[in-house]
């Protein structure tokens, strides 16, 4: 095992230590320290270009798929630095699932959409049961129990996104990452997804990137506010950093930083 000796509290499931991420020579985000608590919903908010999506994608090594993307620092999950050379990114993604901005079901049936991930992860139990449970957890079962063999594309945008959530739940991850899951959806679908998230909180840790501050306030326990500033040693471009990290209540009621206050009151962003 690739364990470190550092003491990390038991309720911390994922921990960023001095993480900086660059795309080629462009530095997207710098020196992030952040601890995500188990069983919490943590939201990442901030203006465009502050690197919050980049940070989210780095948590299950999705950034590997982007050419030239490199990460410095450590991301500790289960006592292991997931950026250690010996770590298999496929295994990381099995334990840390992800829901994307655009609903992206597979061009397969609803049933297959869920069965696919479970099957490749070596699931040998009752597949029908798993599909039903996953769809129930994602609050989609009642709407599609009679058309499991229809294509995933036959669903509406909001239903597709819940299908993607169900698909992620089916592989039983420990953490679910959500990258602006509601930005392509109407308010009613958004509300349903938020209800789903509240249900999921009982069993999973959720980290969500959102542009919608009301959503962060509604769903999350903790909030991380990212901002971007020009560094003196940089090449003039803005570099993202973690400006403030606290409980959602404190961030929205009594933020310590002036920029946080300005952002949540809509002065910039």
């Amino acid at each position: 095992m690739i364990k470190t000796n550092k003491k990390i509290p038991k309720n911390i499931i994922l921990s960023l230590e001095n993480v900086s991420i660059s795309y080629g020579t462009f530095e997207a985000v710098r020196n992030v320290f952040c601890n995500f608590k188990k069983g919490n919903i943590t939201s990442l908010i901030g203006p465009s270009g502050c690197g919050k999506s980049t940070v989210l994608r780095s948590l299950n090594r999705m950034n590997d798929l982007i050419p030239n993307c490199s990460l410095k620092g450590t991301v500790l999950f289960d006592g292991t630095n997931i950026y250690d050379k010996r770590v298999d990114p496929v295994e990381v993604r099995r334990r840390i699932g992800m829901v994307f901005q655009q609903p992206n079901p597979f061009p397969k049936s609803i049933y297959e959409n869920i069965a696919f991930g479970a099957r490749i992860n070596g699931f040998t139990g009752n597949m029908n049961e798993l599909v039903e449970i996953s769809l129930r957890k994602a609050a989609l079962w009642d709407e599609c129990k009679d058309k499991l063999n229809d294509s995933g594309y036959s669903l509406s945008g909001g239903q597709q996104q819940r299908l993607c959530i169900a698909r992620t739940i089916a592989i039983e991850p420990e953490i679910i990452l959500m990258d602006e899951p509601c930005s392509a959806l109407d308010p009613i679908s958004t509300l349903k997804i938020e209800e789903t998230m509240h249900e999921l909180k009982k069993n999973y840790t959720i980290i969500i990137v959102t542009h919608n501050m009301q959503q962060a306030l509604r769903v999350s326990d903790m909030t991380a506010f990212f901002n971007a500033i020009e560094y003196e040693d940089g090449d003039g471009g803005k570099v993202g950093y973690l400006a403030e990290f606290n409980s959602t209540k404190k961030i929205f009621n009594s933020p310590k930083e002036k920029t946080t206050q300005e952002y949540i009151s809509g002065k910039f962003g």
């Binding site: 798929l65 993604r93 992800m98 829901v99 992206n104 490749i120 698909r167 089916a170």
Partner: peptide
Amino acid sequence: VPNELRYASLGVGASMYTTILKVTLPS
């Protein structure tokens, strides 16, 4: 084939090989 589809597959823990064989090639 849209990249989102590849991300979707890799995101549920599929290897590159499974992704190509089961998702991108059929598409």
